[in-house]
């Protein structure tokens, strides 16, 4: 099994590694994965007042494919609306990175992470609106 150049590139030069303040109302945080299986992914988005993702950060403990998948997703979501970001499919990630068949599960984790981050941001704002 060999990783594609794109995976290696993201793995060696991951984009947007880091954290945003999870208590900031403009930040949505997605934390997915199970420590038992060794892959944990945290993906955060910072959303502007008009609902556009202006920044994204991730921290991933996992294999090269998991790191590349989350790195790629943080690049993809910047400049997108929340709705657009939530439609990113694991198959698109796997295809773009040419993940080997046994590794496409990592792309599912990245899709779950961005969906969770969007859901977290929305939950924060729904609560605010209800107050």
């Amino acid at each position: 099994m060999a990783y594609s150049e794109k995976v290696v590139e993201h793995y060696e030069h991951p984009r947007n590694v880091g954290s945003l303040d999870k208590n900031d109302p403009s930040v949505g945080t997605g934390l997915v994965g199970a420590p038992a299986c060794g892959d944990v992914m945290k993906l955060q988005i910072k959303v502007s007042a008009d609902g556009i993702i202006e920044d994204a950060k991730f921290k991933t403990f996992g294999c090269g494919s998991a790191i590349a998948s989350s790195s790629l997703v943080t690049e993809w979501v910047k400049g997108k609306s929340l709705d657009e970001a939530a439609t990113i499919k694991n198959t698109e990630i796997a295809q773009h990175l040419a993940l080997p068949p046994v590794k496409i599960h990592c792309s599912v984790l990245a899709e779950d992470a961005i969906k969770a981050a969007v859901a977290d941001y929305r939950a924060k704002h729904d609560t605010k609106a209800a107050e």
Binding site: N90, T91, A94, V102, I104, H105, S107, V108
Partner: peptide
């Protein structure tokens, strides 16, 4: 399952 048609599923 890793499928060339439908991708990953658990």
């Amino acid at each position: 399952l890793s499928s060339p048609l439908s991708g990953a599923s658990h």
